[in-house]
Every structure is written in structure tokens, then in C-alpha cells.
Amino acid sequence: MQLYHHPYSMDSQKVRIALEEKGIDYTSYHVNPLTGKNMDVPFFRINPSAKLPVFQNGSHIIFHAIDIIQYIERLSVSLNGEENPISSKVMEWVERIESWNPKLFTLTHIPDKYRLFVSKFIRRVVISRMVEAPDLACLYHVKLREAYETEDNLKGPMNLQRSEEKLSSLLDDAEIQLSATTYLVGEDFTTADSMFVPILARITLLDLEEKYISCRPKITAYYDLVKRRPSYKKVIGKYFAGWRKYRTLLKTMCFLCIRSMFGKY
């Protein structure tokens, strides 16, 4: 089993936490979306959406995080003989969490000079790959159009407001639930938690913990508990805990600056 992912990708974090919690072995391949590696021709031929993660088990390839996680749950049943692991309550939380798109929220809270620098670099990567693979030009053009549409969406304040309201509603409901249970669905860590924890990690990475987490005591206690789990330490803490986030981000920015300087896209 192979997983193409990257620490920056929230969906990748969701899938990796689920894999680690289930103790399923897999081969890890990093594909950095900020440097355009997800646009490389061999990867793009497999996955024209260019989104991460991508899970491959033999000839079986799955692209969407929620589909991968459900596959992992079924795989765990066959490997470990567990009972049906996904209850209706778990699925309710999974679907609710999956309905919030973090992209606009994330980009809005990144300083413009860094966001625009990366966006320009990615657009140049896409154009370069169109030249490399003319047979994929139409699909690459779709990604180029999406990049411009994203920039347009960032200019609309109502788009951000709706995203923030949806996030706050999700966190408020989680705060209520965590007043009654240790984890989102009872006393055991479930798929719902695998999906939810990366949202808290993203909020922390953007230095918005005070606004969204610290003001919710039950979520604060829950997050402190989760950060002690081996799965969190391996998937998120290794890259973003404390000073590590600066090291992780700095490596990518240095790579982008050097590539831009020499026009290597």
C-alpha cells in the first residue's frame, strides 16, 4: 500500500492519522503542493485533480480523503477482525467536518506577499507542464483556471465570512459534544477524531488558536489530550509543533526562492 501525501495537506493528515491509529503499514511518498510536485506529469496522469492524498493498494487507487478513510476502516475489519467500525454518529461527524472547505480560510490568513508568491510560482509550474505534456494541456488549463478563480474568491469578503461562520458553528457543536464525552463520539478515538484534529492543527498553524480554540475550554482540553497520542506526534507534531513549523515552512520557501531565481519550474 502506498500513500502520496504531504504534511501541508489537511486531507493527508486526516488519512495518515487514520492509518496510524489502525496500525496499518504503508509506503509514504511526499508530494509537496507548494512546490508544484502534484503537477508533475507522471503524478498528474494518475490524478488530474492534483489533490492530495492519493492512496494506492495494488491496482486500486483512491483519491478522496473520506473515501480513503472508509476504505481503511473496511481494511481494518478484514485485517483485525473488528466489528463494523463506522457508526451512524461517526459518519454524521465525518460528513459535517468534510463539508467545511479549509482552503479559502487558510489562504485568507496567509500574508499576501507569501500567498501571491506561491500562487505565481504554481501558475508558472502549470504552464511549464502544459508544454511538457501537450496531451494533458486541457486538464492543466483547468488547474490554471482554478488558480485564478481562487484569487477572485479571496477578494470577496462574504466568502471568508461564510467560511468562518461554518467553522465556528462546527467548533461550537464540538464544544457541546465534548462536554459529555472524551472524544467526538464517546470515550474512544474514532474516525471522526481523525477528521477533526487536523482542523485544530491548521488553526494553530495560522496563529488563530486564541480566537477559535482557547475560548472553548472543552476543545482546549481535548486538543491537549490528542496531542499526546503517537499518531498526532508522527503526523503533525513532527512538522508543526513549536519551532518545527518554522523549519518546515522555511525549507519550502528556500526551495521556491531558488527555483524562482533560476526560472526552474
Rank of each mutant, 00 (worst) to 15 (best):
106 T>G: 00
4 Y>N: 03
16 R>D: 03
80 N>W: 13
157 P>C: 03
10 M>S: 10
218 K>L: 01
227 K>N: 05
120 K>S: 12
164 E>A: 10
61 I>P: 02
8 Y>M: 15
86 I>S: 02
222 Y>L: 07
232 Y>I: 02
231 S>H: 07
236 I>W: 07
65 A>L: 08
40 D>R: 10
24 I>K: 07
200 L>A: 09
201 A>G: 14
95 E>V: 00
118 V>K: 11
237 G>E: 09
22 K>T: 02
153 N>F: 10
214 S>K: 14
38 N>L: 04
93 W>H: 03
162 R>W: 13
179 S>L: 00
117 F>C: 02
119 S>F: 00
94 V>E: 02
207 D>M: 07
181 T>P: 06
262 F>Y: 12
243 W>P: 15
83 E>T: 13
92 E>L: 04
242 G>D: 14
16 R>H: 09
99 S>V: 05
15 V>A: 14
146 E>C: 06
109 H>C: 04
2 Q>A: 04
242 G>I: 11
72 I>M: 09
90 V>W: 01
195 M>P: 01
54 V>Y: 08
81 G>W: 09
34 L>Q: 11
192 A>Y: 06
212 Y>W: 15
143 K>Y: 00
56 Q>G: 01
247 R>S: 12
134 P>R: 03
66 I>V: 15
95 E>Y: 07
84 N>A: 12
137 A>V: 04
76 S>D: 15
262 F>A: 02
33 P>V: 03
21 E>P: 08
176 I>C: 09
54 V>R: 00
156 G>Q: 14
32 N>H: 02
151 E>R: 08
226 V>F: 10
167 L>T: 04
130 M>F: 01
188 D>L: 09
62 I>T: 11
51 K>I: 03
52 L>I: 06
85 P>Y: 11
118 V>G: 10
213 I>D: 08
193 D>Q: 01
10 M>I: 14
260 S>L: 08
12 S>P: 06
262 F>P: 05
81 G>L: 08
101 N>W: 08
80 N>H: 14
4 Y>D: 05
155 K>L: 14
124 R>V: 03
231 S>R: 09
261 M>V: 05
